[in-house]
């Protein structure tokens, strides 16, 4: 059975696509967690549906449409975030209105009935060779960008003034993140869908936090956890005959719960140990 799995071409493509997206999402997800941008990720991802609808209406490439609309949304949110609006409310409005407008726009499409579920929850098993090439290009671009700007991004995340004093422009670094986020959303749409992209960004990073001492380790651990979640979720979905995107997120969440429990237990054990040694 396992042999059959590996030789199945579409399964191999799906696995590769999943791993690539997980690798790109991991370091970016760490920044999303550190900078508390979870809702920002949501807004960008939900705008993708609007991008899908617009590109179908104008019959352009879906990838380009999603990329452009996500980028516009991310930039808009970045610009507004500096101006003292109540951010959570504003992001809530923008995220869900983008999704709603997208869904309504899709219903106007003449003739074609598109499979909305595929865009909302992903359709990783339908990844074509072209899709895979695009995902690979996007993934490599994002990983390269984050790797190149890593130290500057990290400094700007710690404190903007500290970054300025070191000659780093925090706005430029924010732009790097915004751009990366839009690219990840565009390429991950096929894998986990618009509704679950944020989960793929945040859950592996949050899981990794429990047992990492430096930011670099956390990013690497998040990449591994993300990779395990996507490949494991893919297999589990195949065996259980469940939708793939949600299964991937379920597995990631399971790992998160396990790591939380493990961290709690190890803390209790070490407390016991230190109490015992204090008594002895």
């Amino acid at each position: 059975m396992l042999e059959g799995l590996i030789l199945d071409d579409f399964m191999l493509r799906a696995a590769l696509a999943g791993i690539l997206v997980a690798l790109a999402a991991a370091p970016l997800g760490c920044f999303v967690v550190w900078r508390r941008m979870a809702y920002f990720g949501d807004a960008t991802a939900h705008a993708a549906i609007l991008g899908v609808a617009l590109s179908l209406l104008m019959s352009t490439s879906i990838l380009a449409g999603v990329l452009v609309v996500s980028l516009i949304m991310a930039t808009l949110v970045t610009l507004l975030s500096g101006r003292g609006y109540a951010m959570d409310t504003l992001l809530g409005v923008m995220a869900h209105s983008a999704l709603a407008f997208g869904l309504v726009a899709v219903s106007f499409l003449p003739g074609v009935r598109i499979d909305l579920m595929a865009y909302l929850f992903g359709d990783i098993l339908a990844v074509s060779k072209t899709d895979l090439a695009i995902i690979a290009a996007g993934g490599v671009l994002v990983i390269g960008l984050i790797y190149w700007r890593w130290s500057a991004l990290l400094t700007a995340t710690l404190n903007e003034d500290l970054a300025r004093a070191s000659g780093i422009n925090p706005r430029r670094e924010q732009l790097v993140l915004t751009l990366s986020l839009a690219v990840v959303v565009a390429v991950a749409l096929k894998v986990v869908g618009a509704l679950l992209i944020t989960a793929l960004l945040i859950i592996p990073a949050a899981t990794a936090r429990r047992f990492c001492h430096t930011p670099e380790l956390m990013a690497i651990a998040a990449a591994i956890i993300g990779g395990v979640s996507t490949t494991g979720g893919l297999q589990a979905a195949y065996w259980l005959d469940t939708p793939t995107g949600p299964t991937i997120v379920c597995l990631a969440t399971l790992l998160f719960a396990l790591s939380t429990a493990a961290a709690r237990i190890s803390r209790l054990v070490s407390q016991r140990g230190s109490e015992a040694s204090a008594r002895g």
Binding site: V33, W34, R35, R36, S151, A152, L154, T155, T157, L158, N159, D161, L162, A163, S166, I168, A205, A206, R209, C212, H213, T214, P215, E216, L217, M218
Partner: peptide
């Protein structure tokens, strides 16, 4: 800086902090 609050989700050792950005 006057204020620097480290987000608890960001693991950071002293040595890593001193090596930022170079």
């Amino acid at each position: 800086p006057q204020r620097l609050s480290l987000d608890p989700t960001l693991p950071m050792t002293v040595v890593r902090f001193l090596n930022l950005p170079h």
